[in-house]
Nucleic acid binder design. Structure first.
Lengths: 214, 214, 214, 214
DNA sequence: TATGAATGAGGCTTCATTCAT
DNA sequence: CATGAATGAAGCCTCATTCAT
């Protein structure tokens, strides 16, 4: 991504440590030591510890939203049902590839830290808008049942973040960690069932099922 | 609770700040300032910041497990189905009364902090044992369907902590915060539906339904 | 000495700890814990940590000087040679019985701590005066050789404190610790040899020798 | 010595204060103030107050033992009598040049502080070995009388440290402080007399005397 | 006489950052 | 670009002491 090695080493180390010890619990010295880099470089590249945090959060959400947005663009030509499933798969794949960062971001979001709120609130608005677009289209077309939009989004978001926040439980249930190969396939089954059984109208679900069978 | 005012003032302030800014992000000075108390008292009463953390975690889990355990004791005379619902209501009530502490504890648990792990791991073992006792009894008696025990426990735990970790979303959906009056009644409906529809065998659910109707 | 148990327990604990860890390195809490006594008692009985130090130093020097003074009083009726030896034996005996305190005092004296200097300087003047009295009388009577008085006193003092400051070496040489039974007899031999061979005029030494033989 | 000014300023200030007020009685703020340096530098350069202590002790013993060792190496080509005298002169010269550090080290050694013991015990073993080598060679060659080795070493060590521990007395006797110019010459007379009269066999002493005369 | 609570000062250390090189 | 030195602020903790009981 960034062509500079020192810079990317810092980010990598930071993600790992933020994830393990939390933002406040990690010192820039820890990071610089883990990255095999001089401390001053952190201030040089990111204008301080907070800048490094912003970089992490920003880059996460940029990628996260891109994965969501590109499916919204296809709404005109694809069914909302299909769109939603593909968006979810995109996001899970992206999160699997960045599982440490993912875990850190979704956890830190639950802290009411002013700093974090300021950085990410606009992203959350966008996220909500994208999900809403897909779901409302589906409702209009009669594909999705008319549930309160907030409830649906919450359940969705919860399902998307859960495996990363509670990875230890995943292992117990499926003998799979979210960063491992088959995680997505296994988890998608669960989510698709939710979409088909809870979110979709009977007709849609059956049609989809047929397609899947054929 | 404890008859000493200074001591309980410290705990109250700590819970509030730990909740808002995280353990690592909170300084003892912050706490002492909020509690209107001399800093040294924190070391005096809790042997340091970490001792204060331990006090919070320990007292949470003691109460939490008590609420669970007392229903397990009744397993011999009450149906597992009834037991489970009452245990859940107990826990929700307790958590509602201590919603800040609850939120803090379940969040901090997701950090792999060695300190936290050491303190609470034995509590988690107990928790698991209690839930398992209820559920397995139910399965034996044919009241519950035979799902993987880990999966059931995870879903249960997730439902128990969710409202406190994502309180802002609750408001969106139900115009209710978890610390408000009717929260429990509203939320219990959702959980009971899950118990009846997903966890219970058809017969049990129907019987229960009848009772409820009558 | 002091009829109060709490008070004497404090002193005993203090002497032990001051000896092991030094005055500055010992906290009043350490002392109160070792004495099984409430911390506030130290301030109550001694008006603070420094007062406790003064008590230790004062009581040491009072006893130390008494042992020296009572032989000086006998100078009129006894030979200086005899006086000196008896004074030394007195002091060694007293120091042996209070070897921890002794070690602490002579060590702390080597620190230029203002506090200590203020407390003990007058005692040191007295001490010097007493030694001087004995030695000068001996010189006048022709029993002692006319060495510089300061030199003699230094050597004397050095011999009197050495076994307590370097107790570990004593064990190596004589298999004896200064607080053990036969220490004084063994050590007196060494000192008496120094008095007879270095300090005394030939005549005196020989006479003394005869007496000893007879 | 070390090319870094801040670092050496800290050491210099520390030695002075440790000497005056003892290790435990000196605060890092005192040191940093005296050295005109920011407090954090002490941790930066020495990893804390204890690290600074170790640095002082270690550097003292390294130099001290070097001065001793280089004479032991010459044992094959020089007489033990000569060796011993030269070793002593070396050590006294070194100690004179670092009289504050010397006084501090030999005093702090008398405290049974675990920290100090751990750092220096191996140095003391070496020191003993070196002295032993010289003296035993002398005994084998018939130059030194066969006294218990421990006794000789203790007396030696006592003579080597005494002027620095009791510098105030030195002034009284010789109008000389150990850090002043002629101290070594004056004091060496005393020590050489002890070597010739007490430690050496008659023959050796006489021969040495002759040489000295010639 | 003895105690536990409470305090303000000061202890040592770590923090994030800046700056000259 | 990268570094090591240096700093001031803030971190947590212990200190000796006081006070009401």
């Amino acid at each position: 991504m960034s062509r500079n090695k020192t810079r990317s080493d810092i980010i990598e180390a930071a993600v790992e440590l933020f994830n393990t010890k939390g933002y406040a619990g990690t010192s820039v010295r820890d990071i610089s030591k883990k990255a095999n880099v001089n401390v001053a470089n952190i201030s040089y590249y990111f204008k301080g510890k907070q800048g490094l945090l912003e970089e992490c959060l920003t880059s996460f959400f940029e990628m996260y939203l891109t994965n969501l947005e590109k499916e919204v663009f296809l709404l005109e030509t694809t069914s909302p049902h299909e769109c939603l499933k593909r968006a979810i798969r995109n996001i899970l794949t992206f999160q699997r590839e960045n599982h440490l960062l993912t875990r850190f971001v979704w956890r830190e979001v639950t802290i009411d830290s002013q700093i974090v709120r300021e950085i990410i609130s606009s992203y959350l608005v966008k996220e909500r808008y994208f999900f809403k677009s897909i779901i409302e289209k589906g409702v209009q077309e009669g594909a999705f049942v008319n549930l309160p939009i907030s409830l649906v989004i919450i359940q969705l978001k919860s399902m998307l973040s859960m495996p990363f926040l509670n990875s230890q439980y995943l292992r117990e249930v499926w003998q799979v960690f979210p960063h491992e190969k088959y995680f997505i396939d296994k988890y998608m089954v669960l989510i698709e069932r939710w979409i088909d059984e809870t979110l979709s109208t009977p007709t849609t679900a059956i049609n989809m099922d047929k397609k899947g069978v054929i």
